[in-house]
Write a protein that binds this DNA or RNA. Structure first.
Length: 458
RNA sequence: GUGGCUGUAGCUCAGAUGGUUAGAGCAUCAGAUUGUGGUUCUGAGGGUCGUGGGUUCGAUCCCCAUCAGCCACCCCA
């Protein structure tokens, strides 16, 4: 059969793995620096854990796992023709691949509440799966790198997470814009426009203003059944200007009529702005009333990160990190009153940007330091002893496994970018010596065979 | 789920108004070079031209269908 992998998935070669490891280690380093602890959760979740948490579109994109066994036997009492697609799907699929790391984490917290000390700060780096149609910067299997604080309503957490985003992208040398908004402000706007009851519908439309413009979004809202006057009232509140984060919040505060939601939202944003002032953020932070984010579970601060195309020549337009506060997620798993806030780095998209901008440091791939040429059965034994000594000294070394012609062995060393090749053939052994060749300079040195380890430790 | 573009060697791509045996570069393997790689030279292997059907004396090329990939929308990391 032809070897193939499902669309939207990828294998990684050693060279790519070296770069991915660099990326993951950079992010992990920041997570640890701020006191976040690692956890992992299962790849497979019960389907009920995931369904209904992400919105209608999210549900559609969940990868479902077909029940094992004879599916028809399980259905024998049901009339397939009277079932809806949804009902049928429930009967033949009880498990699914995780769609993100946040919802499984909420489930994890609710399950392990007695083992955890709150506020609990965790990081998690694992793949997630989405049954989306792949395209540029969009994969069906990709890694998320999440950091969340759960069990604390303090806005210091928001400040910390934004600072962590900044730290990561400073380290990676990617200029970014960190966009910030607040769901309560959006709700206040929706309330003032008299459309709060359709909030989630409005949200997804608002999110498109930045990309598609007001007129396109207006059309969409009309098709969703909103009236001209409602849309007018809605858009009227979206004309916030101002240069700095502070000014933008102040302007929004003037623009949006007072109600409880608005006052809370503004107050929280002001506290975050205050905290950020003392956090020495390098990248641009920007308040954006039009930022909405499609995930259902956010209730407070929302954050989205994009490449700052004014400061680099990146064409990458997708968000590369995102996050926000969710007040009721653990509630769905029987643990009420525990608020959480978190961020998620999209490792694969960040990888694409690093590649596009040529920002990977040189010399990332780790390779064998020393390779011994295989001169046959008699000579192998001594090589194994020398290699053992090198390994004990922490130097990576290997013996070519077959006694084949040198061209082949040297070609292997060359392709694998081995730094040094050691010759211990008849000529050298007669003198209790070995010849060491530097594969970069081509220079060769003959040394006593009891000094091999010292030579490489130098 | 909706729309557009593309399928020729392991990879990147040529190709002819429809006409014998479908090419190149890179990669692979072998030899020049039985104790020296990255350079060079020589040679070799590798293709049911995505799949199925139609038009035709004849299709890799034209038509239809189908599958796959890419891109955009939707949504998101």
């Amino acid at each position: 059969m032809k070897p193939n992998i499902p669309k939207g998935t990828r294998d990684f070669l050693p060279e790519e793995m070296a770069k991915r490891t660099y990326l993951f280690e950079t992010i992990k380093h920041v997570f640890r620096l701020y006191g976040y602890l690692p956890v992992e959760t299962t790849s497979i979740e019960n389907i009920d854990t995931l369904m209904g948490k992400y919105g209608e579109e999210g549900d559609r994109l969940i990868f479902k796992i077909l029940n094992s066994g004879d599916i028809l036997a399980d259905l024998k009492d049901k009339d397939i023709n009277t079932l809806t697609g949804k009902e049928l799907s429930r009967l033949i699929s009880e498990k699914a691949l995780r769609y993100d790391l946040t919802v499984p984490f909420a489930r994890f917290v609710a399950m392990n509440r007695n083992e955890l000390t709150f506020p609990f700060k965790r990081y998690q780096i694992q793949p997630v799966w989405r049954a989306d149609r792949p395209q540029k910067g969009r994969y069906r299997e990709f890694y998320q790198c999440d950091a969340d604080v759960i069990g604390s309503t303090s806005l210091l957490n928001e400040v910390e997470l934004i600072k962590m985003i900044d730290d990561v992208f400073v380290k990676l040398k990617i200029p970014v814009i960190i966009k910030i908004n607040h769901r309560k402000l959006l709700m206040a706007i929706a309330e003032n426009a008299g459309i709060l009851s359709n909030f989630t519908e409005v949200i997804t439309s608002i999110d498109k203003i930045e990309k598609n413009g007001y007129s396109a979004v207006k059309e969409e809202l009309i098709s969703k059944g909103f009236t001209d006057i409602q849309i007018f009232n809605l858009f009227n509140l979206f004309t916030v200007g101002g240069d700095s984060f502070d000014e933008q919040i102040a302007q929004a505060s003037l623009q949006i009529p007072n109600n409880n939601l608005k006052l809370e939202g503004i107050r929280e944003l002001e506290l975050i702005a205050e905290g950020l002032k003392h956090s020495r953020i390098s990248n641009t932070t920007s308040f954006d009333v039009k930022l909405a984010r499609g995930l259902n579970y956010y209730t407070g601060t929302i954050i989205e990160v994009k490449v700052d195309s004014t400061k680099c020549k990146s064409q990458f337009n997708n968000s590369i990190a995102g996050g926000g506060r969710y007040d009721n997620l653990t509630d769905l798993f029987g643990l009420p009153g525990v608020s959480g806030v978190g961020i998620s780095f999209g490792a694969d998209r960040i990888y694409d940007v690093l590649k596009e901008l040529n920002l990977f440091p040189a010399g990332l791939s780790v390779c064998t330091q020393v390779m011994f040429i295989n001169f046959g059965k008699e000579r192998e034994k001594k090589c194994l002893e020398w290699i053992d000594a090198l390994h004990k000294a922490g130097i990576s070394a290997e013996l070519y496994p077959d006694n084949v012609k040198f061209k082949k062995q040297m070609g292997y060393a060359d392709a694998k970018k081995v730094a040094f090749v050691v010759f211990a053939g008849d000529d050298e052994v007669a003198k209790n010596a070995v010849k060491i060749k530097n594969m970069v300079s081509g220079e060769e040195n003959e040394i006593k065979d009891n000094q091999i380890t010292d030579y490489f430790l130098k």
